[in-house]
Write a protein that binds this DNA or RNA. Structure first.
Lengths: 143, 143
DNA sequence: TAAGATACAACGAAGTTCGGACTATTCAAT
DNA sequence: ATTGAATAGTCCGAACTTCGTTGTATCTTA
């Protein structure tokens, strides 16, 4: 298969660039100091992996464990995250969201949902499926 | 036109999520301490807008001017950016890239180019055009 | 020509990242 | 059983970044 043309590459570049600046989504909880980017990522990850350990999260997000420790500290301090020692391995800690953390995560997810909605609404019904299929291919079929 | 389905929204969400983690591109100049995200953005902007002022950049990137001042400071200190008083308005400063800055920017652009290349290479020739058309529609036709 | 708007920079407080050192456990191999 | 190595996490502190406040020229305009 022939290579993409320079025009295509350039077009994709400007599109992504604009994209990134445009869809810099706002925080759920306003008023309070917004969470650090990392903290939000941690929250979202734990939302889908209740009981996981800090190391799991650190590996997934590709940050040093000490950095992740800071993040969980902040989240616990804010009452969004729970840290519990577990029986099976007493060195380990199990992370899970508190009531408030769950609410925050849901708000965040909802915000994303609306953003995606807005994006897809620009495409026709058939285009939507095609677009999703393509971006999925790009994301997952990469060596 | 009917709304996107929940399935579509969910699929797009996971795709983007993975996308963001996967394509966290490395820095051009390794070895030295990597530039802050903001600094890279500034460099890329100035590369395309030689002679612009700090305020322009700040507005474009949506950060406070003081923050941008810090960024230009760092860049100047590293020898990547030049700051020059201009005649027309002596309060103003004209930003432009130094030799090294230009090299850095080019390296960065090249890295992006390769990333886009990798992405598009996953699609067939016709898909590429369609994909670019769609993402462009999404990015630019948004209220 | 004085009052106000502009373009920036200096300073400093508050926060984030992450390497190094340290504690508590668990595992593995005598 | 015992001990030496790996593991899970945390604590500490240095180096950075962000951004509000304050201050300084320099236009602008009434």
């Amino acid at each position: 298969m022939s290579d993409p043309t320079e025009d295509q590459l350039a077009a994709l570049g400007t599109a992504f660039d604009t994209f990134a600046r445009r869809y810099k989504l706002a925080d759920a909880r306003r008023s309070e100091r917004p969470l650090a980017e990392l903290d939000k990522a941690v929250l979202l990850y734990v939302a889908d992996h209740a009981g996981c350990g800090p190391t799991d999260v650190a590996r997934f997000l590709a940050v040093p464990t000490t950095t992740l420790s800071s993040a969980t500290d902040r989240l616990v301090k804010r009452g969004l995250l729970k840290r519990e020692r577990i029986e099976a391995d007493r060195r380990a800690v199990a992370l899970s969201l508190s009531e408030a953390g769950t609410a925050y995560a849901q708000g965040q997810v909802e915000t994303y949902r609306q953003m995606y909605m807005l994006m897809l609404s620009r495409l026709s019904a058939e285009e939507r499926d095609r677009f999703i299929a393509m971006i999925t291919k790009i994301v997952y079929n990469d060596d």
